[in-house]
Design a protein around this nucleic acid. Structure first.
Lengths: 348, 348
DNA sequence: TGAGTTCGTGGGAACGTTACCACGGAGATT
DNA sequence: AATCTCCGTGGTAACGTTCCCACGAACTCA
């Protein structure tokens, strides 16, 4: 149907030079006269030449293709990461092959194989927890993103600074008079959970709080997971105002739903702090106060790191991006009502 | 660093056959003895052979790569589409190159060029409104998605059935006693707006309502756009309960914010109906009642259509996917309070 | 039994580009 | 003036696969 696409040979013929010279002009090499370059470029324009990336990849080993393997493009946080990576890749003339692993080992393995067969120059991967083997024999340059990167200290990685994020959240809670928040955490299998908990413990110790005395519930990283976790939390005995730090915005929103269903009000009866910074948190009522990860920036930096990795200068090592607090309405300010409550709660 | 990847020649040598025979075994051709195939497959496994898709694409013209150009992967609706397309592509052993155009003509053109240079087998495109030219000279098989597909009746396309969706929404409004809803629409430049309005007018005529008498406001397809549009709507004179049909969920959520800011309640004072079915609508309070587009299915069907298009059998033509109503809490039920109010409003 | 047919196999070309090497001319150096 | 160096150029090989054609063996049918 569509006629043959013009090749570099057609361009060379039209310009009256050899294909070597045409190739030099087209690839921006230096050892060529301005006059010849101009003639080749003009000829290329005239015949409508577009370089065949396949052939380039074949010969030079560089395809201009990058892989991105994330849990789910449908998750707003990962979509942000993908967008950042996409934009940065485009700036450098490379394209992104995007895959969703659904935290499934098999899917991940098959995606990695597809990336290898496509001869991508490298990949950005949020690894499924226990997939060290697959990653190990991936055989191409890669950069890890997300908190599970911690498992692979030898590789370049970009993630949010969970320690700083938890600190930020805790400081804010304390500044609003919530000295002993309850926790809603993700599944035990996820590394991010351990990271979160560790920093949380450190800060409790610094403030003379017994972490073991604080209520804590698990759930899937979903709205429903957060809702049921909050229900369990509300069934417990408690005194006064309840503050909750959720490990993920979706769970926080689910917790908010549970509060409403229990006939309580947020933030009057229960304060909720989220973690992620997804847009949906801005539409809820009250708006979700949350610690926002810089999803887009993570994507951008990951691509930068990957380019370094591909170029054989993996100088970045592990990059941690700072999070920031977004204050909306889901946290009550108790510091005004009860100026001195201190660390006495959680023991009655 | 990493040693040379084994080629089909290595496999052939190991199996003691020619590369032609090895190629036949590996590509699943029929004219080969079971014994030879078995030996080749075994050899391939032994040396860890993985086919070079680049070389295949080079020679056969099929790369196993598909392009997806959407406005923004960060938009939940488009993320769903991307996910559907991604999964279907993976089922067929192809990979997806994902691009975001931001409704920008230049970006779109550059993405299309990148797809051509990558020699993708075809592309799924949500075209920027006025980009007929670029699309026309794209030169590869493609399938359009979204409502702007209407502009290109000659090409295969997959979109939601806006006529059915508007009908669904209007019927629901009427069944709840809202006979003369206000409208919040997208920018005038977008084709989806015209499509929406046309069906809306038809239904007004069928019900003896004068569409011109109904309040109508424009805005960007964003939360902020919906919020300001709603503010303008609330400044108008009105009698009794106000019902609003927004052309997009984000706008509907913005409208909800505006209602709250005006000291009014949803759904007691104002009813809101959305359009899209994004997850965020489930977390708002009240939950957003909306007409949901089948984003994921649209992605799946688009890939199916694209395969047909590539195979040279464009029999699908234009596919319209049905939408469904998701009832949550943003619509008041007036049909109980005022059994017979009919089409008298909007004229007082 | 001889000719025609089928089938599995192997060799070579081709896809479009870049890497490499050799060549010739112009300018610099002795 | 002769040699050396540098630079622009052109030819050729190579990347890894599939396509095409030719070859020989086995098998069928007259």
């Amino acid at each position: 149907m569509q006629r043959r696409r013009p090749t570099i040979i057609d361009v060379a013929r039209k310009a009256g030079v050899s294909k070597s010279t045409a190739g030099r002009a087209l690839s921006g090499a230096s050892n060529i006269t301005d006059e010849a370059r101009e003639r080749v470029l003009e000829a290329a324009r005239a015949v409508g030449y577009e370089r065949n990336d396949l052939a380039v990849g074949m010969r030079s080993g560089r395809t201009g293709l990058l892989g991105l393997v994330i849990p789910d493009i449908t998750n707003p946080f990962w979509a942000e990461v993908a967008r950042g990576a996409q934009d940065r890749a485009a700036e450098n003339g490379t394209s992104l092959l995007v895959f969703s692993s659904d935290w499934d080992h098999g899917r991940e393995a098959s995606h990695l194989r597809a990336l290898r067969q496509a001869r991508v120059d490298g990949a950005i991967i949020n690894p499924v927890a226990d997939s060290f083997d697959d990653l190990d024999r991936f055989g191409l340059p890669f950069v890890l993103i997300g908190s599970s990167a911690e498992r692979f200290p030898a590789n370049s990685s970009v993630g949010s600074d969970i320690a700083q994020a938890v600190r930020l959240g805790m400081d804010h809670l304390v500044s609003k008079g919530h000295h002993a928040p309850a926790l809603i955490l993700g599944p035990k299998s996820r590394i991010a959970r351990a990271r979160f908990l560790r920093t949380f413990h450190e800060h409790c110790v610094e403030r003379d709080i017994d972490p073991a005395a604080l209520p804590m519930e698990d759930g899937e990283y979903t709205v429903e997971g957060g809702r049921t976790a909050m229900m369990r939390l509300l069934e417990r005995d408690r005194v006064g105002h309840l503050a909750v730090f959720a490990a993920n915005d979706l769970m926080a929103l689910g917790a908010m739903v549970a509060v409403r269903e229990a006939g309580l009000r947020c933030p009057e009866d229960v304060s909720i702090l989220g973690f992620d910074g997804i847009p949906a948190g801005a539409f809820s009522w009250p708006g979700l106060t949350t610690v926002a990860k810089p999803g887009r920036e993570i994507g951008v930096r990951a691509v930068d790191c990957l380019f370094d990795e591909i170029a054989g200068r993996p100088e970045h090592g592990r990059v941690f991006m700072p999070c920031r607090l977004i204050e909306r309405g889901s946290l009550a300010d108790l510091s005004l009502d009860q100026p001195r409550r201190a660390a006495s709660s959680g023991r009655g």
